[in-house]
């Protein structure tokens, strides 16, 4: 009796696991908002995720079926002795080579996306490269907030050197916000990530973007957001007791330069120059007259 129970037990839990996994998108236990990534690269990451998920599921079901089968057979073995076998050379070869092939395929198949995400040289070193002006902002992670600095509206970067200088020192006309990063929609975007104190990690789940901020380094992050809207920004590297407090937001907007102009008007506000409604529109600071 207990033999049947335990055989069923070891068969039932993988089935339960798979059922839970299958229903999880319906239960909203999947990717944030149950939606595709907001960046094209993120969509490719999702595809790779699902590819691995398929392979893994097949492997899981396979091993679990075999486990259930051998358990069942072994448990009702009526012979006097077990099967006296030290193994099979052929089987060993098969189950070495087949997984090796699959694994190698997985490894090689991933390379491309990684290359686009991090390795590819975005010809920033070239003078007057158009990509130089994909620079949108510098994000400084500190305990426990995101401080953001945009170059002055209309700034044109002509060389990597200029970008480096901009990163090294505040410049006239720079615009500052906190916790809320705006990026242009449908446009290749470069942000530089810095750390103000300890290590942090810039994580936007809906965009499938994650990059650690290392003290003492400027790290470039490239992405293109192709869905307008707000995306949660979180910290994914332990940065102290308030690690969980680093709630930020990334917003992709069509009219990015318009946003910068508004931000500029707000930041240059001297108590007299602008009307209240005009400035409140950015949502950055509501109160104006006070």
């Amino acid at each position: 009796m207990s033999r049947i129970f335990w055989c069923l037990f070891f068969t039932a839990w993988p089935i339960l696991g798979i059922v839970v996994s299958v229903i999880s998108p319906q239960m909203n236990w999947g990717f944030p908002d149950n939606r595709e990534s907001a960046t094209p690269l993120g969509e490719r990451i999702d595809d790779l995720f699902y590819l691995i998920l398929c392979i893994v599921t097949i492997a899981f079901i396979g091993t679990m079926v075999v486990l259930a089968y051998v358990l069942w057979k072994a448990s009702k073995n009526e012979d006097e002795k077990g099967w006296f076998s030290h193994g099979s050379h052929n089987l060993e070869v098969i189950w070495t080579i087949v997984p090796a092939g699959i694994l190698l395929f997985i490894a090689l198949y991933q390379m491309d996306v990684w290359a686009i995400y991090r390795v590819r040289d975005y010809d920033l070193k070239q003078q007057n490269s158009p990509r130089l002006n994909n620079l949108v902002a510098e994000v400084i992670a500190r305990q426990f907030e995101w401080r953001i600095r945009y170059p002055a509206p209309g700034t044109v970067f002509k060389s990597k050197k200029q970008i480096d200088d901009w990163l090294a020192k505040p410049q006239a006309g720079d615009l500052y916000t906190v916790n809320h990063l705006h990026v242009p929609l449908n446009k290749e975007t470069l942000i530089y990530l810095k750390s103000g104190d300890v290590q942090h990690s810039f994580f936007v789940p809906e965009m499938r973007v994650k990059q650690d901020a290392i003290p003492g380094q400027n790290i470039d992050i490239w992405f293109t957001v192709n869905r307008a809207g707000d995306f949660d920004l979180t910290c994914a590297e332990l940065c102290g007791w308030g690690h969980y407090k680093m709630r930020g937001r990334v917003t992709a907007i069509e009219d990015f330069s318009g946003f910068l102009q508004k931000l500029k008007a707000e930041q240059d506000f001297d108590g007299i120059s602008k009307s209240a409604g005009e400035i409140a529109a950015t949502g950055q600071t509501q109160e104006v007259t006070r």
């Binding site: 170059p151 002055a152 970067f157 050197k161 200029q162 200088d165 410049q171 006309g173």
Partner: peptide
């Protein structure tokens, strides 16, 4: 005149 209220700000250069 370093105040660039209306004109686009200068491209940052070497300090």
């Amino acid at each position: 005149d370093d105040h660039k209220a209306d004109k686009p700000a200068p491209a940052p250069t070497k300090s």
